[in-house]
Design a protein around this nucleic acid. Structure first.
Lengths: 190, 190
DNA sequence: TAAATTACTTACTAATTAGTAAGTAATTGT
DNA sequence: ACAATTACTTACTAATTAGTAAGTAATTTA
């Protein structure tokens, strides 16, 4: 075993993720990544032979991270509103960095992606919807949350507020996202 | 004056609009347009020298169309819910055609666009938000609609539900958009 | 009817794209 | 110690991209 001082493969993934959130999947090239890491474009291909391999790895990472968040939220004793805030907070970070969320970015490019990626995206979205839905369901059952629409629909409403909220706020200003976030949480209060 | 049997310039705009809604601004080329119209790529450049000119024309069209809808809704005696349905209906069409809305598509690519286009997008979005906001405001004043958040925030919530709703529904299925639409209207009922 | 304008086509360029094949230096395993 | 593997670089290719310059046929204008 060696002490790794460099982890190019992981850094590529980080830059790739940033670029997808900043400019979108179809607007960045392997040259953008290699320039930022001071390596050659072929080095990127060595770790991720095709652009779709990079995206696939990224989505796989997201899936495992959201699975972790899912079990964390299930076992947590936090108030349901705090759980939802935990889910929502990263979106505020995105607005601050002039970025949009991966799901919204990739969903916009959906029709240009190979089938193997489409399936992975579908898996990720189902996972995230389910995560929000379960949090809402539990919160309603315990009397911590209040809403009348079916849990899945309520989850869809929240997710669409967030995904398009960051997209719009990048153009109209951060205060619009802040208003959306506040309104989401206010609306769920008992 | 001549009888025009062909209107290439207008057809280019129609195809461009379709492509932006289907695959996104950065995923189509002038070759895609010229092939569909059986003309040469240089003919597209003749009418719209650069891709940004095409997008600019498209946005200008949208702005005038939404201005028309705005005055139509202001003078109309329709119930406010029916007015909002008139605004929402085109989104259902989009889902049926595997497309997303122009605003959501362009917002995702926002950071890759030249400043002159960014300004036009901003203008369009402000216009559309204002249109929904005014309809909500009037509907509340007349007692036809019920909501507690500020009118602008409520407009943002509806717009984000719609924009990201079509993005998600393309992946998870039309029934999710139908549920979102129903919920938006239900939520506003007195 | 001649000149100008319109709506293109032909033919091209320079830049960028994803991707590959062959080579190399350093590390690791046996 | 030597073979294999890892993580690259060098050097390239073929396709696609936006965009241009020059030419042309048909229509319009003066």
């Amino acid at each position: 075993m060696s002490l790794r001082t460099k982890d190019t493969k992981e850094e590529i993934l980080i830059i790739g993720k940033q670029l997808i959130q900043l400019v979108g999947y179809n607007a960045f090239s392997y040259a953008d990544i290699s320039k930022k890491l001071n390596i050659k474009n072929a080095a990127v291909h060595y770790h991720y032979p095709g652009k779709q391999d990079l995206l696939l790895s990224l989505l796989t990472n997201y899936i495992s991270q959201y699975k972790n968040l899912g079990t964390e939220l299930e076992t947590s004793s936090l108030h349901s509103l705090k759980k939802l805030e935990k889910f929502i907070d990263p979106y505020t970070q995105l607005v601050d960095n002039n970025c949009i969320c991966i799901i919204g970015s990739i969903a916009s490019d959906y029709n240009t992606l190979p089938d193997v990626v489409k399936i992975k995206i579908s898996e990720l979205i189902d996972l995230v919807i389910g995560l929000v839905e379960q949090t809402l369901r539990k919160g309603k059952k315990s009397g911590e949350l209040n809403f009348t629409t079916p849990a899945r629909t309520q989850a869809l409403l929240i997710m669409t507020n967030l995904a398009a909220g960051v997209q719009l706020a990048r153009i109209t200003g951060k205060q619009d996202f802040v208003a959306i976030k506040k309104s989401i949480l206010q609306h769920l209060k008992v």
